[in-house]
């Protein structure tokens, strides 16, 4: 899938109901997402590259689940969103607002009740190796050792050339070079999650979908993993969509933060994070964005004084 320049121009944000927040400056981000000058990066090239593929267009998508008792639940209702090539988008919102459902729709694990989803102008119908998915639980195959877990995607697609080398390189990328022969139950939670990241990345997906990938990790492992994800993104220029419950994490990692509300699940606001990368974790500008998000989610109720003053 070689991306053409039109892919990118076509991929301007589809403004949805809550486009007001998009008024925040976008210039920095635009600058960062210039189309790649050369061809798509070679396999595992360690040169930083800008993405030309991995544009997700979600257009008026609703998903209605039928519960066992026959009642209908609208998990997400008329959601439209466009994720640009190489963009990092976070989905944030209270439990049950349909974040996972939206991610699973992009992955192709669910089919939309109405509306369409496209990846690089191709309709998404069913899961495929071009969209990698990482869950909160790593779900490493316990009967395979780590290197075979990582090699799974290549074998499933019958890619045998350079298999060993790729596996070694991706294990190295996530810092598990020495653990190829260990079995999943030998790894700590953070290591297992990194292994599952490597397993998703080895297919060189155009899109990486992350459903609370760091939710089960302790604070320090979490911060390390965040930086690791950013490094990989820098390296591979992959579009990433991440579900998180952690507002700080969303701001630190994302180009845009999609705030969702439940019953039915809707996109409330899309906020652009205007800070250049690499970002400092203690960037004072984060605080304002943070309180903005919390206000939207009605968690900022008891702040009486102005939130941010110098």
């Amino acid at each position: 899938m070689a991306g053409s320049p039109d892919t990118l121009t076509q991929a301007e944000p589809v403004n949805n109901t809550a486009a007001t927040a998009a008024a925040i400056e976008q210039s920095l981000m635009q600058q960062e997402l210039k189309p790649a000058s050369g061809p798509a990066p070679l396999t595992g090239s360690h040169a930083s590259a800008a993405a030309t593929t991995g544009v997700i267009v979600i257009d008026g998508v609703s998903k209605v689940f039928t519960h066992p008792d026959g009642s209908l639940v609208t998990a997400i209702d008329n959601v439209s969103l466009t994720v640009k090539a190489g963009e990092f988008v976070s989905l944030i919102g209270p439990s049950g607002c349909g974040k996972s459902t939206l991610l699973r729709l992009i992955a192709g694990l669910e089919t939309a009740t109405s509306g369409t989803l496209e990846l690089d102008q191709t309709t998404i119908n069913g899961p495929d190796a071009d969209r990698g998915l990482v869950f909160q639980n790593p779900y490493l195959f316990p009967w395979l050792n780590i290197q075979n877990n990582v090699a799974f995607g290549l074998r499933a697609r019958r890619v045998y050339r350079w298999q060993k080398e790729s596996v070694a390189r991706y294990l190295e990328l996530v810092g598990l070079g020495k653990f190829g022969r260990a079995y999943p139950h030998h790894l700590s939670g953070g290591m297992a999650q990194r292994a599952s990241l490597a397993r998703a990345l080895i297919n060189q997906p155009r899109v990486l979908l992350l459903d609370e990938p760091l939710g089960a990790l302790d604070a320090f492992t979490r911060m390390n993993m965040q930086d690791e994800i950013l490094r990989i993104r820098e390296d591979k220029a992959i579009t990433m969509v991440m579900v998180t419950h952690d507002v700080d994490e969303a701001i630190y990692l994302s180009d845009r933060v999609v705030v969702m509300t439940p019953h039915p699940g809707r996109v409330e606001t899309i906020l652009t994070v205007p800070f250049a990368r690499p970002r400092a974790r203690n960037n004072p500008g984060f605080f304002q964005l943070r309180s903005q998000i919390l206000e939207i989610l009605n968690f900022a109720g008891h702040i009486t004084e102005p939130p941010y003053q110098i």
């Binding site: 992955a107 192709g108 694990l109 069913g126 899961p127 495929d128 190796a129 969209r131 990698g132 998915l133 869950f135 779900y139 195959f141 799974f152 995607g153 499933a156 697609r157 397993r199 998703a200 297919n203």
Partner: peptide, 8 residues
């Protein structure tokens, strides 16, 4: 699900 997103 994981295996299907890996292309199996």
């Amino acid at each position: 699900e994981v295996s299907s997103t890996l292309g199996a």
